[in-house]
Write a protein that binds this DNA or RNA. Structure first.
Lengths: 234, 234
DNA sequence: CGTCCATTTGATCAGGGTCAAGACGAGTGG
DNA sequence: CCACTCGTCTTGACCCTGATCAAATGGACG
């Protein structure tokens, strides 16, 4: 089991450029934890005691506002880091992370970051590269929210999801974890009603197939046309 | 002049924990550049040859979309880093940076980052802390765009601007650089028309005073009430 | 004094949020 | 195995916020 883990882990982009001896030394200091579906990995405002690497499953990262709104910041896929507050000089987690399905994570104590970062410069560089990508993603999100219609935002969201966690099926590309209309609404800044109407319309046109907490994209290309805002509106 | 620079620079949070000898060694490798108002510091998609520290002035960071929309990502104030693509493993700049007024910046060649970061761990830590703050800001922005009305977003934007670049005057707190209705619109994802209407309404209520590319917040507290969404609508 | 921009303000209208019911499906306990 | 219940999803009706279209006003600057 430990060796199985290792072979999986060695290929991850965060560990690119790290020798297998070093890799053992890094991974050896982590604990492996199972998180049941719908259970938190970490919570907003909590003391950031650990940072994590998702090995298996999917995690939803959510921010809650004082007035009860919830906004989904991102979904984490296997191989991604999360809760890296310590690498960014924070002492608390900025968001809630909830297991969308049963998950397996590696957890390192936060105070280990400084040591790891200085001893393994590649690890540090790879991590900050990932941070850069997330900053980029967040800005893209702001731009989408500023300039696009709801229809385009939802289309973009589905495309991102299938790119990140898509699984080929005979019908098309399935989003590989349970996702409700409400969840999509929280990703796109709209309501479950509007998402439901859009998915219904798209289903009529044969673009997607969807059901309870389940979305399959049948024609990614046509969805892209909608996302880019160059679709003839019926 | 060089020594004047140095005394100003020593107090910046990015250089916290760095001895004055080291500081000289770091700053010694930078070039000081003047950028005229409305001129770019760096441009989107361009090769990221340098990273910068703003010493004086204000810089607008903008992303342009293919379809001609412009979104303001943030304003940079003196003492902040910008264009730190290299620290995040990028080779090109992700946005345009335009001088809002005449500016003075320090510029380091990008390839120097790796050396500086390993030789001066405090510099690295302080930089990544700043990155963490920006990531946080970007997420806050997404949340605002998802959950708040335009009126609240504009109020929040003005509050951020006076916190970051406010200058006390006898009328109230002035945003210390030229800023048009259009600029505010690009920060908040709305149109100059709506911003104009809001500012007019607020001016009638004595909350702000504004003119051509000029905004003074007279009553920050009442503006905050609007921003938080707990205002009696007239 | 004329030109160019920033700004103001009115009128219109539609995207999509809100409110309100119902239908559907999955899991639970009898 | 069936009935019940709860959560998800669908769909209709209505209305409001804020975008769009259109013009006019007002400063700043050459």
């Amino acid at each position: 089991m430990a060796s199985l883990d290792r072979s999986l882990i060695a290929g991850l982009s965060i560990f690119e450029g790290i020798g297998s001896g070093d890799l053992d030394r890094i991974v050896g200091q982590a604990r492996s934890i199972r998180i049941a579906k719908d259970q938190p990995v970490f919570e907003q405002e909590q003391e950031a005691h650990s940072f994590f690497l998702l090995l298996d499953g999917h995690v939803r990262v959510i921010k809650s506002t004082p007035d009860g709104h919830e906004v989904t910041v991102r979904y984490i896929s296997p191989g991604e880091l999360m809760g890296i507050a310590s690498a960014l000089g924070r002492t608390t987690y900025p968001a809630n992370a909830i297991a969308a399905v049963d998950c397996v994570v590696l957890a390192w104590p936060s105070q280990l970051w400084a040591t790891l970062a200085t001893n393994f410069p590649s690890l540090s560089a790879n991590t900050y590269k990932a941070v850069g990508t997330r900053l980029q993603d967040a800005h893209t999100r702001v731009i989408e929210m500023s300039t696009e219609q709801v229809e385009q935002r939802v289309a973009h969201a589905l495309l991102k999801l299938i790119k990140q966690s898509g699984k080929k099926t005979e019908d098309g590309i399935l989003i590989d974890f349970p996702i409700s209309r409400q969840d999509v609404a929280e990703m796109t800044g709209t309501t479950l009603h509007t998402v439901s109407r859009l998915l219904s319309a798209w289903e009529d046109q044969g673009l997607v197939k969807s059901g309870r907490q389940r979305v399959v994209v049948v024609e990614p290309h046509r969805l892209l046309v909608i996302a880019e805002g160059r679709a003839a509106k019926s």
